[in-house]
Structures are given as C-alpha cells and as structure tokens.
Design a protein around this nucleic acid. Structure first.
Lengths: 250, 250
DNA sequence: TCAAAAGTGTTCGTAGTACACCCATGT
DNA sequence: ACATGGGTGTACTACGAACACTTTTGA
C-alpha cells in the first residue's frame, strides 16, 4: 500500500535479511555447437546439434549444465561467459543471449536457488578440447541430467529454432566462410528437418544476411564442382524479418 | 577446472557469503493497458498504450515500476503478481510473462541489485481504481522515470509489438467480447500505427485466433450498422505463426 | 434519404516452396 | 565420359495489403 514502488533503496531490513538467510542466484548456460556427436557407433555420422555438459559431483551418473553462483560486480552475461571458460575451457562463444529465469522453489533441493539461464553458440569449426568430465551430447540423445536442466535445454532448443527463421543467428553456428551446402546442414541439424540449400541461399541473400565472398572452396572427397564460399554480413544478432504479419503501412 | 558444474549444493562458503554481503534480487513489472490517457488536454482523446507507474519515495519527481524484493517460497511470477496487487490494487492481470534480467552492477546505486522483469497485460474494460501516488501514463508521454526503468519499459513495448504479430497475445488486452473495430484500435494503440480492420479479421479468423460469438453489439453514438461481436478462442498465450519461414516440409 | 459504421469481395504484389535443368570438377 | 556435387531458372502457391463496393442502422 505505501508507495514503496520498486525503489530498491527503500526496502527495509527484513527483506535484506531474507536474502541473507538463503536466496541463491546461479547462472546456467546452454552451450550449443553443431558437430559430429560422440557416440558415432556406426551409421549416422552426420552433424547434430550438441550441448555441453559436465559430470555432476553430488549426483553421480547425472550430467549438468555449466554454471555457478553469482559473484563480483559483473553483468550476468559476463558471469556466464566466465563460468563456461573456467569450467569447460570453452572461450569462443560467438553469441550469448538470455533465456528464462527458473525460479520454482523446489527446482533444486536445499537452499532456494534461482537460475538465470543463457544460451551460448559456438561456431562449428571452433577447435574445442574439453577437460575431464565434460562432453558434448546430441540434443536428441541426452544422458540423465540433473534437476530441471532438461527443461532448460529444451527452452534453448526452441529458442534457437525460432530465431533461425527470423534472425541471422546462424552466424554464430557457422564458420566465418562456408559453402552453402554446409550452412544447409547446420540449419538442418539445429531445426531437425531438411532444408533446401537452393532456397536457403535465396532467402538469406534477399535479406542480405549472407553475402558471397568471391572465393571458391575445394571440391569434396568424391568429385563435384567446387563450391562458392559465403559469409554472414554481420557478426551480431540482427532481426531480419521483424513482422511476420501486421507490418506498418508503406 | 574442478567440475563443480552448476550443482548449487557444491558451492563453497565464499560465494554464499557474497550473497549475504549484498546481492539483492528485485522483481519489476511493466503493466500495460490500452486506455484513454490521463492528460486528455484537448484533441487526441484516443486510446493509447499505457503503463502503470508509482511515485518514487526516495527520488522525488521520478516515477517507477511496481515491484519489490524477492521474499518467501514463491515462483517469481507469483511474486510479481502479488507485488502489483499489493502496491497498485491491480488484481486482474490477464497475462504475465518474463522479460529480461537486468544485471548491470551500476543500474541502481547502493547494494548490487539484479532485476528480474515481467510484462503484465490488463484488459481494456477492466475497471481499475489506483491508490494515491499511482497513475497510468501513455508510453509515448512518459514522465521522468527512475533508474533504468525507461529501458525496461522499452523492452516490454517491443516484446508486445512483436508478439502481436505471431501470437494471440491480444486476448489479454481486449475485453472478453468486442467488435472488430475496437480490436483494431487496440492493435493500433499497441503497435503505434493504423491497422486495417478488414484484414485483421481475415488474418485472425484464418488462424482461428478470433471467433464470432453470433451476438451483435449496440450501434455507436452517431449511427451506423451494429457490429458483430467476436471473442478470442483461447485465454492463454498461443503461438499462431511459428515459422515465418523455413517451415518443415509438408 | 443521408451519413456513419460494418462487412464482403476483388485485385495485386511478393515471398517461399518445389523441382527440373545446366555447370564444373576429379577419376 | 561419367558420376558427383554446385548453381540457375521457372512454375506454383499462399498470404497479406489495399481498396472499392455493398449492407445495415440512426437521425
């Protein structure tokens, strides 16, 4: 009733102590890379969308997302980057963006913990070497994961799929230069269904998302015409199809 | 390096004390309603997208978003609803969803405060009576606002505009029943540009977002044919145009 | 019967899909 | 020369924007 409003400096002591008695804020990151999944036992050796996970110390047999508690005077996106670099040795995240906050009081046992989550993308040609206890998993073949991390990964998958269709977000999944067929495979892996390479080029060209570099690549293992190499016009997120409908007049 | 991962129970004491020494989590809500703005001084007495603000205690002359610190074992969306109800007497938020987390260490002076923000929508026919020190402001005519609240409001505006074009989110802005012309005004107010009523009906009908109720309304002040009344098919958020492009085959 | 507002129908442009056909290279 | 993969061109479809025209009411 008193118009305390949102002014944080007007809060009284009882709330501050509430914090001190057990509110924890953790940052979790869903790091994606399109790569050949680890368990290439036989046939399907194609590229797949993979997530970065590490063995959980306290819950044997379960895997969890990289992250940790908030500390220091850093923006949370900086915290997310630092934690992934420290625990996973992954330092070249090409794009990082916020996902939801997960705040269910029962999401983890013990101290009430709120998770602020992020999605990070690593280019497919980025040479990552993981430390012990860390691994990539195809999103379609996840191991048992801790707490609500499966739900968080699912949120990230859907976010990525949605943004592929109306932004240039794939710049952070593809190498700096690439033949269109490779980009098509990346889209296919991230979306989960095939994409026509021909039309992909047309769409991305019209929107000026992708430009030709003029150079050509090497022809593949079994002959064929050498491909033209393309590159993304921007290296940061851009919305390329803002209004699906209800566009402003003119 | 040690695979602490994201397991919160594996964190050590230093981080917990870090929390205790001054990490605060606040929840802020951007509550929108399409209504006639307060300062109807003359001509433009049309409906506008308005935001709910209250006078700030510590920063005289500035207005701020409703909110407060996190306390108790509640999900943050419940906290947001409770805080708006307690401080603004607004209890019928038809839709509430998360916006971003704002975590710049310098966003408010004093104790480091992370803001988890929400957007709430109130139906245009909802009869709200605000307490002293609270008021609606047209988003195009905001008063001086505290801290980074202007940025938060801007984020909410853009989120709302985007979702109007690919979801049924307008169900939470419109009355339960309405003539199409009224819905058109609501879209116009929220988007900031005129919307063709004819085409709006066609689009929303095809997507089965809006259905005819069979009933007709009263004709307006200056004659005219009485309008058919429509209603939204759902009362919760639904994505109606998932893939702007790159649809799955078939 | 005239103005005002609602509803219907028509035309047009454009983006995206599907697919056939042509080109360049290695073996 | 032929298989293999890359690139170009051409319908076809569908959705949405714009706008003219008809219908129904109150004054």
């Amino acid at each position: 009733m008193p118009a305390a409003g949102s002014d944080p400096s007007s809060s009284d002591g009882s709330q501050a102590s509430d914090n001190a008695t057990g509110l924890r804020v953790e940052v979790l990151s869903v790091v994606f890379q399109v790569r050949t999944p680890p368990s290439a036992d036989g046939c399907d050796v194609h590229a797949a969308l993979c997530v970065l996970l590490s063995r959980t110390a306290t819950e044997p047999g379960r895997w969890s997302l990289p992250g940790g508690d908030v500390a220091g005077d850093e923006t949370l996106s900086v915290v997310a980057r630092r934690l992934v670099a420290d625990t996973m040795d992954v330092r070249d995240i090409a794009h990082l963006e916020q996902l939801s906050v997960f705040s269910d009081p029962a999401r983890v046992p013990g101290v009430r913990t709120i998770a602020s989550t992020y999605m990070g993308l690593v280019r497919s040609d980025s040479p990552v070497t993981l430390p012990e206890g860390a691994a990539w998993f195809a999103v379609d073949a996840l191991p048992p994961v801790a707490f609500d991390h499966a739900e968080i990964i699912d949120t990230a998958r859907h976010r990525l799929a949605a943004k592929l269709s109306y932004t240039n977000i794939a710049f952070a999944l593809a190498p700096k230069q690439f033949p269109m067929s490779e980009l098509s495979e990346i889209y296919c892996a991230a979306l989960g269904y095939p994409v026509d390479t021909t039309n992909l080029l047309r769409i991305l060209s019209r929107r000026a998302v992708v430009v030709s570099t003029g150079t050509v690549g090497k022809t593949g293992r079994s002959g064929g015409r050498p491909p033209a190499l393309y590159a993304f016009a921007d290296n940061e997120l851009r919305v390329t199809d803002e209004f699906a409908t209800l566009r402003p007049p003119m």
